[in-house]
Amino acid sequence: MTTSTTVPAQISARALARRRRREAWRRGWATFRQHRSGMIGLGILFVFVGVALLAPVIAPSEGLSVTRATGGVLEAPSGEFWLGTDDKGRSVLTLLIWGSRISLFVGLAATLLSMVLGTLIGLMSGYFSGWTGAILFRLTEWFLVIPFLPLAIVMATTLGRSLINIVIVIGVTSWPGTALLIRAQTLTIRERPYIERAKVLGAGSGHQMRRHILPNVMPMVFANTTLTVAIAILTETTLSFLGLGDPTRVSWGSMLDAAFGVGAITTGSWWFIVPPGVCVVLVVLSFTLVGQALEEVLNPRLGARR
């Protein structure tokens, strides 16, 4: 009799939790839609993601081959080549479309690595006291003291020029800011009464961090993710422009590097250098706008100050 009573209670509790999550998502989406700049950023982001996913359909990969180039050297925009050609006769539009795949992939993958590292280290440094928390906090401070870009350049030079290495370099060098945010939030949450009740009931450290602290810091992680993606894309563009990117892949940064190398500015070949720069600016702007909107959704007090 006890078992038959407990099972429906558990089912109803889970159904109630799912319904509350759905309602929270609906409220969050309704608040996000009221943020005009956030919707603009989301629209721009959808366009770039769609172009990246449909790149093989929009512009076949044969257009990336130097041996199959059909245009002239730095040919101006025309009906055949809407954005002109590069110094090897390839369509700049084709390079731009395929470059979006690499730039977005590096930005998202590096951000994922950065968020995982920052969240784990922030949680543990904020929850554990004593030597464990102190060492993790000092490690975070050490990474913050070292200049970000020089450290990324040194690591990229040491590891070598490959796509995976660029992801590792950006992810490993961009986690400290997230770790500090998560640590500060964890220090606040661990003093709340329900954490004390969990301790009294015998919950271990892993259970407390996984079931009580992590769900409360995840909104901050989500909001910070969109801003970190923008930083990661800028870093990938910078490293590729400095010649530290993957030489076998086309990205917006490598396009800027190639345009600078052939003197596109001095020869007036604006179609080779302006489009990738504009794409970088638009993608970074879109992620920033979406991040600001998410901050307002997750922290209603920000909206009240507007």
Rank of each mutant, 00 (worst) to 15 (best):
V116D: 13
S61Y: 07
R36M: 02
A17P: 03
P77G: 07
L64K: 01
P56E: 11
W98E: 03
W98F: 07
R190D: 09
V284W: 04
W270E: 15
R19L: 10
I168P: 11
H212T: 11
L120Q: 11
F260S: 15
M220S: 05
A110E: 10
L45P: 02
L151S: 13
G41F: 06
N216K: 14
E62T: 01
I195D: 12
R301Y: 08
E236R: 06
L95A: 09
L42H: 08
I195V: 15
F241N: 02
V167E: 10
S205W: 04
R249L: 12
A134E: 12
V274H: 11
W252Y: 07
V200L: 09
I189E: 05
W271S: 12
L54E: 04
R192I: 04
L239D: 03
L117Y: 07
P8I: 04
L239E: 03
G130Q: 05
A179D: 07
A69L: 11
L282C: 10
R19F: 08
I58W: 02
I182S: 04
V7A: 00
I153G: 03
S114P: 08
T6G: 01
I170C: 08
G84Y: 02
L54N: 05
G63I: 01
H35V: 06
A156K: 00
L234P: 00
T70R: 11
M220Y: 08
A259Q: 06
Y127G: 04
L139Y: 06
F272D: 09
A198G: 10
G122L: 12
G277F: 14
M115K: 09
A179T: 03
H35K: 03
L181N: 09
R68D: 14
P150Q: 15
M1Q: 10
G72L: 05
P147R: 00
E80F: 08
R36K: 05
W252C: 09
G72P: 02
A69H: 05
R183M: 07
V297M: 03
G28H: 05
L112G: 11
A179M: 07
R33Y: 08
G126M: 06
T188Q: 15
S254C: 07
G118M: 13
F143H: 11
F287K: 00
E295Q: 13
V221A: 13
L95F: 04
G122T: 09
G160D: 03
T266Y: 01
V221W: 06
L298Y: 07
A203K: 03
V250D: 00
V290G: 04
E75V: 00
S205N: 15
S251M: 09
E236S: 07
R161M: 05
T85P: 11
E295I: 05
A203M: 13
T248H: 12
F260R: 15
S286T: 04
S78V: 02
I182W: 01
R210N: 03
L54Y: 03
T5D: 08
G245H: 01
L289Y: 12
G126L: 04
S129W: 02
G71Q: 01
F272A: 14
D87F: 04
E191P: 05
R36S: 06
V262F: 14
S251A: 11
R20F: 02
V73T: 11
A134I: 00
R211I: 11
T288Y: 11
V217L: 12
P219K: 02
A152N: 09
A76F: 14
V154W: 09
E80A: 10
